[in-house]
């Protein structure tokens, strides 16, 4: 039996530069999570797909390839590191795809017009806990330096994601256990997002969690009711906000690639 394996970016075709982060376990985990969710993504039929912090271009190229070509969606990617954007362009071209690129901080300059337009957003942020002063450094440092708990840049990205995601928008976010992924889910739940950890993988150095977040009207309703109850003090000993419905799908699709 012949099983169709969806195409993703090929490592030999991924360009590189001394100041750009090469695809590594975290990038592979994110692409594996996208592959595992491919059937849903195809059904979702996103019309605008975006990556914040595209680095080598491995992830956005893989997303474009696994969604089966370019003509049905608009792909756009940003990075604060100009070298990374050039490398991404080379990676994309080597795979015969097209992705629009902007050198910018997160989505600065795009937020206004992309307001509520992005259907799929993928982010592999600088998540490594580092001294505060390393955050915002130029070059390759910008690809990992995440400040206290590795949350500095993540916490700047989340409100932007909330702004630009469409009503049916999905966010795929790479996190480490040190980033407290459940706190991220809880924080986004207050803005009406449901979430699920769709892939968890431990490497020698890191315990990676790929979170998928999406706007969910029921979650928003529950949160509003919850806040309403709090404000009117109708319940004296209110339980803490219920834990988000986070489930873990153990999967290791890399072996199947």
């Amino acid at each position: 039996m012949c099983i169709m394996i969806p195409k993703i970016a090929q490592i030999p075709l991924v360009s590189s530069h001394p100041e750009v982060y090469d695809p590594c376990d975290d990038s592979f985990a994110l692409v594996d999570a996208l592959l595992a969710d491919r059937a849903n993504l195809l059904e979702h039929q996103p019309s605008i797909c975006m990556e914040i912090g595209c680095g080598s271009g491995y992830v956005i190229t893989s997303l474009a390839l696994l969604l089966g070509g370019n003509s049905s969606a608009y792909y756009i990617a940003t990075d604060i590191n100009p070298h990374a954007v050039r490398v991404t362009q080379e990676t994309i071209e080597a795979h015969g795809c097209h992705v629009e690129l902007v050198i910018t901080d997160i989505a600065s300059g795009l937020e206004k017009r992309l307001n509520r337009l992005v259907d799929v957003l993928v982010v592999n942020p600088p998540y490594v806990p580092t001294p505060e002063e390393e955050v915002g450094c130029s070059g390759i440092t910008s690809s990992w330096a995440g400040g206290v708990n590795g949350r500095d840049v993540i916490d700047r990205i989340l409100p932007v994601a909330d702004k630009i995601l469409s009503d049916r928008g999905w966010l795929y976010l790479v996190t480490l256990s040190e980033n407290n992924p459940l706190d991220i889910c809880l924080q986004m739940r207050r803005k009406g997002y449901a979430s699920r950890i769709i892939l968890q993988r431990s490497t020698q150095e890191e315990n990676l969690h790929i979170i998928k977040l999406w706007r969910d009207s029921e979650t928003l309703l529950e949160e509003n009711e919850c806040m309403g109850l709090k404000k009117t003090n109708r319940v004296k000993n209110m339980n803490p906000i219920p834990f988000p419905q986070v489930s873990v799908w153990g999967c290791d699709s890399r072996n199947n690639r």
């Binding site: 604060i80 100009p82 954007v85 050039r86 362009q89 690129l101 902007v102 050198i103 910018t104 901080d105 600065s108 300059g109 795009l110």
Partner: peptide, 12 residues
């Protein structure tokens, strides 16, 4: 904001 090789640079 310069555009070079088709890529705009919006860094401030």
């Amino acid at each position: 904001f310069p555009v070079s090789k088709g890529i705009p640079n919006m860094l401030l």
